[in-house]
């Protein structure tokens, strides 16, 4: 099968998935959750006030119209206005995305490079003392809760030693660097443990395959075997693991942003949840669903570049 046909088909699959996701979001927000007017007006609201507010918020329209509204927003990103700040939600998202990405994107990239290098190194010296030590360090790093890193970083590295700002944010490069450096480092430390363990397992799964023995029998040296033969096979699970993380980068790091006072998307979402700002929460839900779907399509397309067998399926 032609690769373009495959990609096209994969993209067409997105439509029913997206419609389904919108339906779930609609059910969650309109049928499952409590009446937002009650929560906004408090318990002393009378029926007339409630009806007025429902009309104002467009909640008295038919379910079909409201559902189509969500579907439309998934394609146009026009999410309407926030109930509490009356701002255009898409503007809020645009403003929040940059601070979020300044933390998550460099952290993700650096963590990816470090973990890949470490896991290849560890896989090369499998069974060796270095391998065991690395696995031990990974488990230790995973066992320490993230709050411990945050408090240690803020108290010792930022407050006592003054390497970084404790919290806050400034727009524009390089002004934001001292603010995002510490949350970045903490993100990296948090992800290296599980990442290295995962990559190492994936690589070691390939090490004992028959084709590796064939490669040795040809006279290839271990480095070529690892970097050419094994790595390309291990790329399939690695790509899934990596690409599926990207939507979460856009959505920001909830915990880190709230601890470090970074006005990113994570913070916006938390505020919206606290103030019953349904449109914002819904916008973030739709956005994450769309991002997730897009990146899973990208993953599938990347597979075809790595694994020739995928195209036939």
């Amino acid at each position: 099968m032609n690769i373009y046909v495959y990609v096209l088909r994969r993209i067409l699959y997105v439509i029913p998935v997206l419609l389904g996701v919108c339906l779930i979001i609609f059910v969650l927000f309109n049928l499952v959750s409590p009446d937002p007017t009650l929560m906004l007006l408090g318990k002393h609201a009378n029926l007339k006030q409630m009806q007025e507010l429902r009309h104002e918020l467009g909640l008295d329209r038919s379910y079909v119209v409201q559902y189509l509204d969500i579907v439309k927003s998934a394609f146009t990103f026009d999410f309407g206005r926030s109930w509490s700040t009356k701002q255009e939600i898409i503007e809020m998202i645009k403003n929040g995305a940059i601070p979020s990405l300044t933390v998550t994107f460099p952290a993700f990239l650096i963590a990816l490079i470090i973990s890949l290098v470490v896991s290849l190194f560890v896989a090369f010296y499998r069974g060796h003392f270095l391998d065991r030590a690395a696995v031990l360090v990974c488990v230790a790093m995973m066992s320490i809760p993230s709050l411990a890193y945050i408090l240690f970083g803020q108290k010792i590295l930022a407050y006592d030693l003054g390497f970084f700002e404790i919290s806050g944010y400034e727009h524009g490069f390089p002004a934001f660097v001292p603010y995002v450096a510490l949350p970045c480092i903490i993100w990296i430390v948090l992800s290296i443990g599980p990442d290295v363990r995962f990559y190492r397992t994936v690589i070691l799964d390939e090490v004992y395959m028959d084709y590796v023995r064939t490669a040795r029998a040809k006279g290839l040296n271990e480095k070529v075997i690892l970097f050419k033969h094994i790595l390309k096979n291990a790329m399939i699970p690695i790509i899934t693991w990596v690409v599926i993380q990207i939507p979460f980068l856009i959505l920001g790091a909830l915990l880190l942003e709230s601890f470090f006072g970074i006005p990113g998307l994570g913070g916006i979402t938390l505020n919206a949840i606290n103030s019953t700002d349904f449109p914002v929460v819904r916008a973030m839900t739709v956005l994450s669903a769309v991002a997730y779907i897009i990146f899973s399509v990208i993953t599938d397309v990347l597979y075809t570049l790595v694994d020739p067998r995928v195209r036939l399926k």
């Binding site: 028959d210 084709y211 023995r213 490669a215 029998a217 033969h229 390309k232």
Partner: peptide, 28 residues
């Protein structure tokens, strides 16, 4: 070892029992 590698696949070659898995699936 590097001289041994010059013999493997060159002077002494080997084929295996598992033709289905002995080739690397992701290279032509």
């Amino acid at each position: 070892l590097d001289e041994m590698r010059r013999i493997r696949g060159n002077k002494i070659a080997m084929i295996f029992q598992e033709p289905m898995t002995s080739l690397n699936p992701v290279f032509t």
